[in-house]
Amino acid sequence: MSNTSENPNPSSSSAKITLKTSDNELFEVEEAVAMKFCTVKQYFEDEKDNDVAARGSSTVIPLPNVHSAVLARLISYCKKLPQSNAVADNHEEEETKKKERKQYGTPGDLVDLISAANYLDFKEGLEFFNQALADHIQNKSVEYVRKFFGIKGDFEPHEEEKYREEYAWAFEGVDED
């Protein structure tokens, strides 16, 4: 629950930006990392334009929609970006990427990361976490997906049966849960 993933080395020469999360934790983040979040970037540039924060690093940007635990994971993801951003052009690489995506385990975590990436307008991250979530639906049975994400089915049995008949081909050959 703390900002452990940020760079603890204060002597690093690159400029820092301070982000404040919904639970009032302060994160000092390298500018290059923070600028990946378009919402922060926009805010930062507006501040600059208005010349309010000529002292630069002392600006604190509030992110009332992002919890510290989520921000910490987003930042640590950002730092790994250069490697994981390469286009997967063969099967092996795709498998590696899949494993990488699996680390963002529980459904709740993924939803948080997706919401936060969406709010921060962090496109690469959003795409990555969307794919991580899609991995839990691809080739799975409806029952598995419901259970995994805690979705309550609210169709009448006959309605659901109708769907299963109409799209019969889609319902066959799923992976074991």
Binding site: I137, Q138, N139, K140, V142, V145, R146, I151, K152, G153, D154, F155, E160, Y163, R164, Y167, W169, A170, F171
Partner: peptide, 12 residues
């Protein structure tokens, strides 16, 4: 894959 996308219509 499209079959998985269509299948989600029965989730809720």
């Amino acid at each position: 894959e499209t079959k998985d996308a269509v299948k989600t219509s029965t989730l809720s």
